[in-house]
Each structure stands twice: as structure tokens, then as C-alpha cells.
Amino acid sequence: MAVFLNRDTRVLCQGMTGWAGTHHVARMMEYGTQVVGGITPGKGGRSHLNLPVYDRVADAQVETGANASIVFVPPPNAAAAMIEAIEAELPLVVAVTERVPTLDMVRVRAALKGARTILVGANSQGILVPGVGKLGVMATGSERPGGVGIVSRSASLTSEVVAQITAAGLGQSTTIGVGGDPIHGIGMRECLELLLADVDTQAVVLIGEIGGTEEEEVAEYVAGLRPSKPVIALIVGREAPLERRMGHAGALTLRGRGDAAGKIKALESAGVRIAPSAHLVGETVRQALAGRG
């Protein structure tokens, strides 16, 4: 049973007529994702990629029966697009857009309170369920169906870890990119909870980095739960300089907060296995599952 994305997921694309939306929606459809329409205000009634285009999410949802959306809207208008999808009560929204203004994301988080929508992102590479569908911009080709769930803050490292897990003969159940911006929707702890409850997931890999407190929140959750399924973590940025953003807007170490060493210590204390290097994640997962068996 995949998390978030399955063969019944019917997807709208907000910003589908732009270059990024056009390119990635075509790839998603090639992979098997059921995309049913696009949203571009002012272009309603047209067709794009042989799909209907609508002015408003609510209208598209009624006509297509969509239950998910992916957002390719540029940063100045991305928050408005997310809020529109939330107000239309779409169960799942994935926001790919990077560096949405922080105050705008505060408004999005306020709109999520009490809503029935789960937001993944912003600045998410998306969700991938091998052989079923992808809702995002991640590369495909090395993924295989299997029993390892992945929750990540890093798009490029996700591709590396997916390839290693496949090479180890394990495969993936669901891969989720929570997003690298400082304020986003669903976090690593909530995704871990969902994957641990998934009957098809036998182990979970967390890909963390400097900045924020998500990894520490995961450590607290794991310490209290003591799950029977192995949890493995890769934390990057051990040599990152203080107070300098490293890639993602959320990858920023402040003095005494958010550094890799502190995150690793908290996770190890909770019983999470730490992969010592990016190139050893696949082997670490294999050993963890062998020890469990």
C-alpha cells in the first residue's frame, strides 16, 4: 500500500502551460500518473498536452474528480495557488516551486489549519511510487518496487539513495521529498509515521541536512515509539560553515542550532542507524534489514 500516491490518484497541475509544468507533466504521464487537467487563470477552455485547462481549481475538481494537485507556479504567486487548492479541499497538494517568500508560506500554513489537505513542499521534488506513478520532478530509471521508504530534504541525494537501494536488491515503497525551504507543509516526522504504518514498508531511510529541527523531532518520536522497523538516517553538512546557506534556503546552521553533529547525536541516541557516508546508505539499509531478519 503506497503512501499518498496510488493508481486512483487523479492529478491537476497548477501552472501546467508554462515550460516547467509542460515538461514535467509530460514525464509524469509517461510514467503512468493519471493527470486529468491543468489550471492557468485566463486560459480556461483551452487544451494543453491533450488535457483540459481551467481557470480555477474548484471548477477543475468538480469536472474531473481530481484528488491531488501539483504546483509549478512561480514564487510570487505560488502561495496563492496552494491556498486555492486548499480551499478547494483537494486531499493532496505537492508544491515544487522553490524559494516561495517566507511570509507567503506563513499564510499557507495558516490556511492548512483545520483543512483536509496534506501539503508536500514547497521546494519538494515530489512523491515517487515505483511502477505506480510519480508526482514531481525526480529522475526515474534506477527505482524499483520494494520495501524501503524514503523521506528526504534533498532532491539530488534522493536520486543517489534510490539507486543504491535498488543496487542492494531492496527497492522502494514510497519516496517523499518534504522540501528544502524553511517553512513547508508535512514534515519528516509525519512522513516517518505514515511509512512505519505502511504494511509494504520494511525500513525507512531519512535524508537530512543542516538547518531547522526536523531531524531532532524525528529523534524524539523514534525514542518514544521504539519502532520494530529499522530507521536509517543520512545527515549531510558536517563540514558546513556557520551562518551560511548551503543550497536550500532551509540549509542554514546558526550558532548552537541546526548543525549536523547535533542531529546525528540525537538520532543515534534514539536508536536510529546512521549511514556514515552518502555512498554507504544502501549497504547500511541492507545490514539493518539483515539484522532484523
Rank of each mutant, 00 (worst) to 15 (best):
V96A: 10
V96D: 03
V96H: 03
T97L: 10
E98D: 14
V100P: 00
V100Y: 01
T102H: 08
T102Y: 12
L103P: 00
L103C: 02
L103T: 01
D104E: 13
M105H: 09
M105P: 00
V106M: 14
R107A: 12
R107Y: 06
A110G: 02
A110S: 12
A111S: 13
G114H: 06
G114L: 12
A115T: 01
R116T: 06
T117I: 08
T117A: 11
G121P: 10
G121Y: 04
A122D: 11
A122C: 13
N123R: 13
N123I: 07
Q125A: 11
G126K: 06
V129Y: 03
P130T: 00
G131T: 03
K134M: 15
V137K: 04
G141F: 04
S142K: 14
E143W: 00
P145V: 00
G146Y: 03
G147Y: 07
V148N: 11
V148M: 05
V151I: 14
V151D: 07
S152F: 09
S156N: 14
L157F: 13
L157M: 15
T158D: 07
S159E: 13
S159N: 15
E160R: 13
V161D: 08
V162F: 05
V162C: 05
A163H: 08
Q164M: 14
Q164Y: 10
I165C: 04
A168L: 12
G169R: 09
G169D: 10
G169N: 09
L170N: 03
G171S: 05
G171E: 10
Q172P: 00
S173T: 02
T174Y: 09
G177A: 10
G177P: 03
V178C: 08
G179S: 10
D181V: 02
P182Q: 12
I183R: 11
I183S: 09
H184A: 14
H184I: 06
H184C: 12
G185C: 12
I186E: 04
G187R: 12
M188E: 15
M188S: 01
R189A: 12
R189M: 15
E190T: 01
C191G: 06
L192M: 11
L192Y: 02
E193D: 13
L194S: 05
L194R: 15
L195F: 03
L195I: 07
L196Q: 05
D198M: 07
V199I: 11
V199L: 13
D200Y: 06
D200W: 08
A203R: 01
V205G: 07
V205P: 01
I210M: 15
G212Y: 00
E214L: 05
E214T: 07
E214K: 14
E214I: 01
E215L: 02
E217C: 02
E217T: 01
E217F: 04
E220L: 14
E220A: 10
E220F: 04
V222G: 00
V222L: 10
V222D: 05
V222N: 01
A223L: 13
A223K: 12
A223H: 09
G224W: 14
L225N: 07
